[in-house]
Design a protein around this nucleic acid. Structure first.
Lengths: 243, 243
DNA sequence: CAAGTAACCAACTGGTTAGTTAGTTAGCGC
DNA sequence: GCGCTAACTAACTAACCAGTTGGTTACTTG
């Protein structure tokens, strides 16, 4: 099916026609377009222009705008495979490991702004497209496993509190690393500070790491309010509610 | 300018023409439309249909789709004026006050899903429209002030750690209360659990409150790594970085 | 080198959509 | 009860935009 010209090497000058290169250019342009404008805001004419190919070529290789979007979406999530460097963290001492995991999550979001944009965009669309993907889901399994392992080892050696749900912890780590970036435009304006400046990012990174570690290392028994000693009971007395 | 018919009471049956009611119907329909479809996905024909008015009436009262969107945006943010119940929290003991503040932020996000959607949508649009608003920014000043007050009082009585930036703390509280909701569609699918079920929300609420309080009450000196004793220095040694 | 195939393109199409035009009619002030 | 203003409408328009048609040309294969 693929029609790569002169694949066996030989002449050096690139051929006029090159399906692989064209597809790559389309995907690259599409990624930028979807990331900056969202699915509904994206224009396939603009993608064609930016890729330097005829619009029809897009339909030649991808059957529709939505199909192309899905390809981009899967690509971005799969780049998170890099996340699987979590594995390297499993053998570190729990505190060090957790610290590295949080910092790495933070750094990854900073380094891949496209991931954050597309995650937001997908959620605006109620995850309609992501749900069609087969691969993405499985990427999270090793990550959760790493978290569980670290958590258990930390609890065993007495440095982490008990009764921490790994999914909740993952949600919190992501939340802390994600929100200030995903919402940086409204927040920067509201608080009169560039949340994505290197200095501010370094500060925030330290804060986020401290927050997670501070929580995990805090003594839950001492911290719990007068009545609550078991967390996570499904309907707490709710002393803190205002109304 | 306003042309409200029979404003002085009198006959009970509603008049055929009623500008205030029409505008209200338009705004209500527009809110639903923008919240579910975003700015680019929204259709003014659909808004007109849903409001039960002629499309041109929308242009009679609001000069464009974007203008209407801005109105909705401001309305949603202004409903956060309710947030100013933070003030009631200022006089509580610091721990109780902070607990209530976090819980209230969480509850507010749960109760106002439209706020989260529009915040995400605005950030997809780089806060282009919010920046045109004059009112929104000022809503955050008292909130930050409350945070500062609580923080200072807690530090003074020795129950909160030192060196906590109020903006960072606000970002973290919001992040923890926002992320699992804003991204509930992708996350629910990935983790095979309905993140917005009442049970799960109650659990998450407890976790979030615990996380913030646990962090604040943790002893920063004891928690800090071997070298770092002053947090928030603008370029920490970064022992936790992986690469 | 002939013939087939896939890469590639210009121009078009039809449905959609924000916004307009050119009015009609309800209700108020006098 | 007349005239004015504002509420309200039906039908239209111009631009836009995803997707198509109907090709031409580069490259491969036999």
């Amino acid at each position: 099916m693929e029609h790569s010209p002169r694949p066996q090497g030989g002449s050096r000058h690139k051929p006029v026609r090159n399906s692989e290169a064209s597809q790559a250019k389309i995907l690259e342009a599409a990624r930028a377009e979807f990331v900056t404008h969202g699915l509904t805001g994206a224009r396939v004419d603009r993608i064609a222009d930016q890729a330097g190919v005829n619009k029809n070529l897009i339909y030649h290789y991808f059957k529709s705008k939505e199909e192309l979007y899905l390809r981009i979406l899967e690509g971005i999530y799969s780049d998170m495979r890099e996340h699987q460097r979590d594995l390297e963290v499993r053998d570190l001492p729990p505190i060090e490991g957790m610290r590295a995991l949080v910092a790495h999550t933070f750094d990854h979001f900073v380094a891949t702004p496209e991931l954050i944009r597309l995650m937001s965009i997908e959620n605006i669309h109620y995850a309609h497209y992501l749900k069609q993907s087969k691969v993405v889901k499985s990427l999270y399994i090793p990550l959760l496993q790493t978290l569980k392992t670290l958590l258990a080892r930390g609890q065993q050696e007495g440095s982490f509190r008990a009764n921490v749900d790994p999914v909740d912890l993952y949600l919190s780590i992501s939340a802390l690393a994600y929100f200030h970036l995903s919402n940086r435009y409204t927040l920067s304006w509201i608080f009169n500070q560039k949340l994505d400046s290197p200095k501010r990012l370094a500060e925030r990174r330290a804060h986020v790491v401290e927050m997670v570690l501070g929580y995990l290392q805090g003594d839950s028994a001492a911290l719990a309010g007068s009545k609550q000693t078991t967390r996570r009971s499904s309907r707490p007395k709710d002393r803190s509610r205002l109304e």
